Computed example of a mutant assay.
Amino acid sequence: MLCCLSGWLCSTLFYFAILPAAILIGTKLIIKKLRGKVDLTNEVDIQGKTVIVTGASDGIGKVTAEEFAIRGARVIMACRNLQKAEKCVKDIRTRTTNGELILMELDLSKLSSVRKFAAEFLQKYGGASNPGGLSILVNNAGLAIAPGVRKVTEDGFEETFGVNHLGHFLLTNLLLPEMEKAGNVSTDPSRIVIVSSVAHVWGQINFDDLMFEKTPLEDWKVFSKFYCNSKLANNLFNLELAKRLRAKKVNVNSYALCPGYVETNIETNILRDNPPNWVWMKVIRPVLSFLMRKDAKEGTETTIYCALSKYLTHHSGEMYRNCEFWDYSKRIKLSEKDAAKLWEVSEKLVKLN
């Protein structure tokens, strides 16, 4: 009797604990092995060059700023909360004294703040005072709000779309002359890096109601459609931007990327404000987190790859993840027609011309 019970317990333990754990651990190791890595031996030299990272006071942005500083760059940390950013700089300085870390205020939810930032940057670090121009612009800052919630910026834009797309759209266009200047004085192209997300595959751009002022919001429980829409806008922006840069024949490249599943304050805030059901929180999310989650440094690697890899010197307008090209056949087909239309609409919304 005891032998039968012991055998049953061993079988149960094997099939319901040991085997699943072994499968999970094995899958995690395979996934981690398939991730690309930054090749430090094949990077352009950014010693003394000027770069801007938006949203650099936390998460991926903070690590991105630190990686640029380690390589000797002058890093403009464009942050909404300067007090938080100051603590970030102190923390980075405990690990490296290389490069420069310069704080500047930027609130992407306010077009007035975007214009003020650009004007101050040009005054302090542009023109004749910096013949080298702006070598790298990383549009990293991002906002996600709880599903089912709609907020607007002071300019009247749906908040996620306004911050994630329109704010960066205006900023990039205002800084383009400095980026073109950097490209003119270097054999290496200056680079615009747009941190997007795999969430763009669930996005949809409704040109008849971009701000969802008339369309009823039927949102998912886990993540917001507004966020997905804004990430699709990021990719369309990248597509049209690269096309326009090629037409101008300037030495400036543009890239979009998905950093992967990185647990940041964005996710933490959403889960706090609108927690999904028990099955998601206690079963699905822990498994996905164990298998897929990257820490902030791992999540930064594709950003650094797009910003510095020599392999990408002759590429522009494409998207990357895990430090490699993301094949168009494996994701949503981006429409050049939609990209051009979004650009025209965005110009009008931010009053660029």
Rank of each mutant, 00 (worst) to 15 (best):
G167Y: 13
N173G: 13
H165R: 07
L176V: 00
F161A: 10
F169I: 09
M179R: 02
V163A: 03
T160N: 05
T187C: 14
L174T: 13
K181R: 09
L176S: 00
G183D: 08
E180V: 01
H165G: 05
T160S: 09
L175I: 10
L176K: 00
L170Q: 12
G156C: 09
V163F: 13
T160L: 06
L166E: 04
E180I: 00
G167F: 09
E159W: 08
H168Y: 12
L166H: 05
G156F: 02
T160M: 11
N164P: 13
G183L: 10
L175Q: 03
H168E: 08
H168M: 12
T160F: 04
L166I: 15
E180G: 01
A182H: 04
N184W: 10
L166T: 12
S186E: 08
E180C: 00
E180L: 00
H168Q: 09
E178N: 04
N173A: 13
E158V: 11
N184V: 08
G162N: 12
T172D: 01
G167H: 06
L170N: 10
L174H: 03
D188Q: 09
H168W: 10
V163H: 03
E159M: 14
E158K: 05
L170I: 14
M179W: 01
N173W: 14
P177Q: 02
T172N: 03
